[in-house]
Design a protein around this nucleic acid. Structure first.
Lengths: 206, 206
DNA sequence: TATATTACTGACCAAGCAGTCAGTAAGGAA
DNA sequence: TTCCTTACTGACTGCTTGGTCAGTAATATA
């Protein structure tokens, strides 16, 4: 007659706890987040949480890893397999990806990385290896492909592919800090930047 | 004969405590910083610290305010009083300012703002009013001056002067996170960006 | 239905910390 | 030298919180 007090759902618990933790960390930061609060959000007791994650720190690392990996993997395989020209790719899938980031709920990850990253060197190392350096490499390949087939001329972008993504991070920071004070139309903002970059590096075709 | 156990230096204490707090907050973040630690770094007892700052939060706000104000004030009055052309100013004083930020020790302020800002709305409001909106306005004026006297053509920069400063913040983030993993030559990086922007907005002078 | 297994709970503890305050001593005034 | 003001100290406290573990109840098995 009585509802069971809980269900046993070994498979789903880690993902549920991780999602709850992302929300909590995003709201309060790592140090100010109470493990009890995470457990409550996940609808679980603190004891169970500690069954799946050895410490608060382990939980934090799991959060970062589980939310970032899928996105970057998608972009990179996209770059490698596309049949579009470099410019078409930059104006198409890349721009779409770039514009989606500041809107995604995962944008709070930047806050977490900045605030807590430096205290977890192995996390930074993982992030560098699996996300950043792979991303940079993919971008550089894309640009060089453009140079090789005469679409682009040689430019600072060859050395600094990061110049393409600066407005993404700026938009993230802006939204994180000044959301209520000022709207930034991130689509237009990022679009204008990509446009500017392409204008300067496009080989003359007149 | 015996050294006095302490000196009374009412005038200097606040600045000393503020400096110590910046170091401590930068290292550990706000929540993880112990007031005792700040006091120790400042060579002062915790009790004295609470004489000058009502709470830990007040101390935090004082830190941000006291380190940011002077820098932005200098830049803005510089823009207003310069006799250089817009391009000369951007390639000269502006570029110098931009390149100096990622090297300055105050770069950790970004970390603090991102991590803790959203929990202190009045701090964000102050920052918006005294730093960001003033800075944006100054930049916009500079660009419009360039447009008016025929140096620049109309462009997305008129609406988004922020496009000029994105690589500064990117450099800050990069250094904050990946300092040991990868060096970024921020001078060249920011220089390349400013160059790119100027190339696209410069009116034809051939 | 009886028994075994284990996912899960929640009360508990030891440690750490923001903020207080009664008392101390530096340094100026007389 | 003596007295007075106040900058300064540091022990103390009440509360918070990461992590533990003995016990409970949901499911699998026979």
């Amino acid at each position: 007659m009585t509802e069971p007090r809980f269900q046993r759902r070994k498979e789903d618990r880690p993902a549920e706890i991780t999602a709850a933790a992302l929300a909590a960390f995003a709201e309060n930061g790592y140090a100010a987040t109470r493990v009890d609060d995470v457990a409550k959000r996940a609808g679980v007791s603190k004891g169970l949480l500690y069954l799946y994650f050895k410490t608060k720190e382990e939980l934090f690392k799991a959060v970062i890893r589980s939310f970032i990996s899928p996105r970057i993997d998608a972009l990179i395989s996209n770059v490698e397999e596309t049949e579009l020209s470099a410019e078409e790719f930059l104006r198409g899938p890349f721009l779409e990806f770039a514009c989606s980031i500041p809107k995604s709920p995962a944008r709070v990850l930047l806050k977490l990385m900045v605030a807590e990253g430096p205290k977890h060197p192995d996390l930074i190392a993982w992030y560098w290896e699996h996300v950043v350096s792979r991303g940079i490499t993919a971008l550089r390949m894309l640009i060089q492909r453009g140079v090789k087939n005469g679409e682009f001329r040689e430019s600072a972008l060859d050395e600094f592919p990061q110049l393409l993504v600066t407005p993404i991070f700026f938009s993230l920071l802006w939204k994180l800090l000044f959301q209520p004070h000022s709207e930034l139309d991130t689509d237009q903002f990022i679009g204008a930047h990509v446009d500017m970059v392409l204008t300067t590096i496009k080989a003359e075709t007149a």
